[in-house]
């Protein structure tokens, strides 16, 4: 500015693009939302048939606890979830490693995975009922199948991304094949495998409810289905809240696992 040579600070253009954790904000959003919802129901803006008040859902939940059925439902659901997810994850990691390590497995399995992954597993549920029976088998199989594919994809992606320099280092020190896989490739692929767990766990919960809506006596899905057919919206909301809680808990557990196992990352 030649006509007016004043000095001024350089305009700041940096900053941003760096979301930080803010404690309690998430909780506050939920509390506010529930408060608005409750107020809407109490003042009559929201018709109780359209959406019951959170307090009514809480009452329904307490009835469920008092009747002792909560633990029956929860126990049935959790055991299906744990068995199906664990089996699907173990199989998925095994196949994912095979694809990541062997040319033959890669050539054979990758097209297969690409072909089957996008099929909604719920569509296959009737088939599973014929194969594995209407009982626990078909439900566990659905969850297993749904968990398997995302785990395979996450695992072989992780194995592919392990620094080849580290593998060459292992070879240069004469490490055995097993040692290289166990001490270099497995920990190196973990940063990709663990986030895959979040996705597969969410898919497992979705499939759990779907599977429990067909021919299950107990289970959170069965409870929600029954509430829906009785138009007991307060129970339906309570059931959905239970599912959310399961989801939150699983996500928290995986978060802790990531913190513990990936401490070495920056």
């Amino acid at each position: 500015m030649p006509e007016n040579p004043t000095s001024q600070p350089v305009p700041f253009r940096g900053g941003g693009f760096n979301p930080r954790p803010r404690a309690l904000i998430g909780l506050a959003v939920m509390v506010v939302l529930i408060a608005v919802w409750e107020t809407g129901c109490r003042t009559g803006i929201i018709h109780p048939l359209v959406l019951p008040a959170p307090s009514e859902a809480a009452t329904a939940f307490m009835e469920l606890v008092d009747s002792g059925l909560l633990w029956t439902h929860l126990g049935a659901s959790l055991s299906r979830l744990v068995i199906g997810w664990t089996a699907g994850t173990i199989l998925g990691i095994t196949v994912g490693f095979a694809i990541g390590l062997f040319s033959l497995a890669r050539a054979g399995m990758v097209p297969l995975v690409a072909a089957i992954f996008p099929i909604p597993k719920i569509a296959l549920l009737p088939l599973f009922i014929i194969w594995f029976g209407i009982g626990e088998g078909s439900k566990v199989a659905t969850i297993l199948f749904g968990t398997f594919f995302p785990t395979v994809v996450a695992t072989y992606g992780g194995v592919d991304n392990v620094d080849r320099g580290l593998i060459r280092m292992g070879q240069s020190f004469g490490l055995s094949w097993v040692s290289i896989v166990r001490k270099i490739i497995l920990p190196g692929a973990l940063p990709a495998i663990l986030p895959g767990f979040r996705i597969s766990a969410a898919i497992a919960i979705v499939l759990l409810v779907a599977a429990e809506m067909i021919g299950a006596e107990f289970g959170v899905g069965a409870y929600i289905l029954m509430a829906g057919s009785l138009m007991a919206m307060d129970q339906l909301i309570a059931g959905v809240a239970i599912l959310s809680t399961i989801g939150l808990t699983v996500s928290w557990i995986i978060g802790r696992a990531e913190k513990a196992l990936l401490r070495w990352r920056v």
Partner: peptide, 18 residues
């Protein structure tokens, strides 16, 4: 000698988790 021919790499090649 446990490993007669032993490398030292430009990028160090240390396992970050160890």
């Amino acid at each position: 000698s446990l490993n007669p021919l032993t490398y030292i790499f430009q990028d160090f090649a240390l396992l970050p988790w160890r």
